[in-house]
Design a binder for these strands. Structure first.
Length: 566
RNA sequence: GCGCCCGUAGCUCAGGGGAUAGAGCAACUGCCUUCUAAGCAGUGGGCCGCAGGUUCGAUUCCUGCCGGGCGCGCCA
């Protein structure tokens, strides 16, 4: 559809003494599809051209109606409503999509460029809660979207693998774990002893001191401390990997905070060399008052570095190592200020990383009665949610499709798909109240609905058989009721992918896939695909193939499996 | 107190300077001897938080207020 809009915009550009892109940007979609495919409101032009909007609309209409692709150009009030020739449009869209052609041409838009994306980033020795779902699936989808556009994507898991909590963990392990080998449920054990440590340390402050000492030893490379530390990381990662496997997610780099430790002094020196740092109340800061922000702390008064220091070092490292176009951080909205400060400091340093840095914030998962809290045990484990969803999916399959082969794997795909889609369905900035019923719903605007539609499509193609002809044989069929709107919607796919990537907003794509699924199901209900008439059937099969590509590829870009039966 | 975000149908949410504000869930009603009913079709349900302003036109942009969330120098 975009292609035709540009075509018409170019045709009008001369008449309006505007650029084709400007004309394109004026175009809207009529509220009622029966009015046409494209609407151009002429009110804004009235002033410039000193003519009544209706008169302008009439002029444009006469130019437009001479275009080959235009069926009709109607003047309604101050609008021109353009109806394109369905057959031409449909042919163009279906031919491309049934071959899986996104229409990028020879070179993809991101070709030769890179992005670095930081997402998921769990804290070692802490359980993977539902709260971590968001950064994980949003980041994963954004990574796939950018890959789709041709970018080389470096996916970084910025593990929380450093800090005084490791000192506490070592002390706690020695005190409370009874030499637990941490082979079974290690994170629960680590988490339990961590909480226990805090409880006991209230009455025995010397434990805190001991923990500090252990962390000091860790920092100094003491072999025993390092062995513990590495061990905690290993067992934690093994657990996280189970979740990542379930979700089908992988990373290019697991670079935790510890990785940047050796780079911190250098990073601080760079900030100081630019004359940006000063000491205040014993701490080393970058004053950001003129930007309306609190200062960025580089060193505490005791000399220790902070989160911001690590992030500066990490940003510099990523920028210099990969030289990407964009440095993406998929991190909760509660850190908006932190990333504004980080970006500002990097910009003050004159670092390209400052301009490249993009924080992609998202709202939090909450419980009905308020915030989740790891400390108070008010949290929901992601694995529990996934397990329940998979179990439920298995139940639905047993009920509706008991003979389905390989149903265990399909239940996994559907169960996980429901959870992932549920998280990607809404704009990421909104807070989400966790609700078992909602997350385990498989009807309506859900992942399983889109997957089910895809499975239906596959079923049609399967039944048609390998030797079935798939071709645009019948113009009438191509433009039939319910069919043409579906095809036109399919034509928006590439544009939608590009918009979702550009806005770092997978929900644009998930919403679109719901529209496609709904539109196809309507079509499916009204037209039989497998019919006697060979031309009608081959044409419908062509449309079905295009739908299959859009749904399968769209789900892939969201990080969701598309089983071919369910 | 200051800053950022959110406020749209009973619930969850889309939309966004433009013509009649849309889905899903829940409720009610139809549709399986024909390609998967995880589906389709229909009914009801709205001062788009409130008050001003800009504009030919505001639910959308601006200001103020109300309500909710988050953040605000030695946590991450």
């Amino acid at each position: 559809m975009e292609k035709f809009k540009m075509l018409l915009a170019a045709a009008l550009a001369a008449e309006l003494k505007m650029s084709a892109t400007e004309v394109r940007d004026m175009m809207e979609t009529p509220p009622n599809p029966a009015w046409g495919d494209i609407a151009i409101p002429c009110f804004p032009l009235a002033k410039v051209l000193r003519k009544a909007p209706q008169a302008i609309a009439a002029d444009l209409a006469s130019v437009l109606s001479q275009q080959d692709v235009v069926e009709r150009a109607d003047v309604v009030g101050g609008y021109v409503n353009v109806t394109l020739k369905g057959e031409i449009v449909a042919r163009d869209i279906v031919t491309r999509l049934m071959d899986g052609d996104m229409g990028y041409g020879e070179v993809k838009p991101g070709s030769g460029k890179k992005v670095v994306i930081d997402f998921s980033s769990p804290n070692i020795a802490k359980p993977f809660g539902i709260g971590h779902l968001r950064t994980t699936v949003i980041g994963h989808s954004i990574a796939r979207l950018y890959s789709e556009l041709g970018y080389q994507v470096e996916r970084v898991n910025h593990l929380g693998d450093w800090g005084t909590q490791f000192g506490k963990l070592i002390v706690a392990y020695q005190m409370f774990a009874d030499n637990d080998p941490l082979t079974e449920d290690p994170i629960s054990t680590l988490y339990r002893i961590y909480v226990e440590f805090h409880r006991v340390a209230d009455e025995r402050p010397e434990l805190e001191e001991e923990a500090r000492l252990w962390f000091r030893r860790l920092e100094q490379g003491d072999p025993e401390a390092r062995r513990y530390w590495q061990w905690f990381i290993d067992v934690s990662l093994r657990e996280y990997q189970r979740v990542y496997d379930l979700l089908g997610i992988d990373f290019d780099h697991f670079l935790g905070e510890s990785f940047y430790e050796p780079l911190l002094d250098g990073a601080i020196a760079e900030v100081q060399d630019k004359g940006l740092a000063r000491v205040s109340d014993g701490a080393l800061i970058v004053d950001l008052e003129e930007f309306g922000m609190p200062p960025c702390l580089l060193r505490k008064s005791d000399g220790a570095t902070l989160y911001a220091t690590r992030d500066i070092a990490a940003a510099l490292y990523r920028d210099r190592t990969y030289n990407p176009e964009i440095l993406i951080y998929v991190v909760g909205q509660e850190q908006i200020l932190h990333f504004r400060q980080l970006k500002q400091v990097l910009q003050l340093m004159g670092e390209p990383a400052g301009d490249k840095l993009v924080h992609v914030p998202f709202g939090m998962f909450k419980l009905r009665d308020g915030r989740m809290s790891t400390r108070r045990g008010k949290m929901i484990f992601l694995e529990d949610v996934l397990a329940k969803s998979i179990e439920l999916a298995a139940g639905v399959i047993a009920e509706k499709n008991p003979e389905l082969g390989g149903s265990e794997e399909i239940a996994r795909q559907v169960g996980v798909g429901a959870v992932v889609f549920g998280d990607l369905k809404n704009g990421r900035i909104k807070d989400v109240v966790f609700d078992w019923e909602e997350i385990l719903n498989f009807d309506g605007e859900t992942g399983p609905y889109v997957q089910y539609t895809h499975a239906r499509v596959c079923s049609l193609l399967r039944r048609a058989g390998d030797e079935a002809r798939i071709a645009l044989a019948s113009a009438d069929t191509l433009t039939e009721e319910h069919g043409l709107p579906l095809v036109k919607l399919l034509g928006d796919f590439p544009q939608t992918v590009a918009r979702a990537a550009g806005a770092f907003e997978p929900s644009l794509l998930s919403r679109y896939l719901l529209d496609v699924a709904q539109s196809f199901n309507r079509y499916y209900h009204h037209h039989r695909v497998l019919v006697e008439d060979a031309d009608v059937m081959s044409t419908r099969l062509a449309v079905v193939s295009a739908v299959k590509f859009v749904l399968a590829h769209g789900l892939y870009l969201l990080g969701i499996s598309a089983p071919d039966r369910m």
